[in-house]
């Protein structure tokens, strides 16, 4: 009963962070600022949801699987965020160059 309540609080908190991340994606002015919102807020959102669900996992094996999902998603988010950040920076510089020579 108490576990169920904790699960509800954690997963609702997780959803709130996903919503905040999406809000940042829509409101922030440029690619790099948007990446801040997506990686950080969504990672925290997924972490809270995973914690909440792990309480309902039943067996330790299931809980470990959930945490593994979080860990892999975190690695994927960190890697893709850098790739997007890098290519956005390069294309910004190219655009600046184009503006200057025009």
């Amino acid at each position: 009963m108490i576990l169920d309540a904790i699960t509800m609080v954690l997963t609702l908190g997780g959803l709130a962070f996903f919503a905040a991340g999406t809000l940042g994606l829509l409101r922030f002015p440029d690619t790099h600022s948007r990446l801040h919102a997506l990686t950080k807020a969504d990672n925290l959102g997924l972490g809270l949801i995973v914690l909440g669900l792990a309480l309902q996992a039943g067996t330790p094996g299931n809980a470990i699987k959930l945490v593994l999902i979080w860990a892999l998603a975190m690695i994927a988010a960190g890697t893709t965020a850098q790739l997007i950040a890098r290519s956005a920076l390069v294309s910004n510089l190219r655009k600046d160059d184009g503006d200057r020579t025009r």
Partner: peptide, 26 residues
């Protein structure tokens, strides 16, 4: 890249690669 991945989750910072020995941090 590992350090950069960490920074994409830390408050306020984001790494967009490096030029020579300088990290470009947003």
């Amino acid at each position: 890249a590992t350090l950069g991945s960490e920074f994409s989750l830390m408050p306020g910072t984001l790494v967009a690669g490096s030029y020579r020995n300088v990290l470009l941090v947003h």
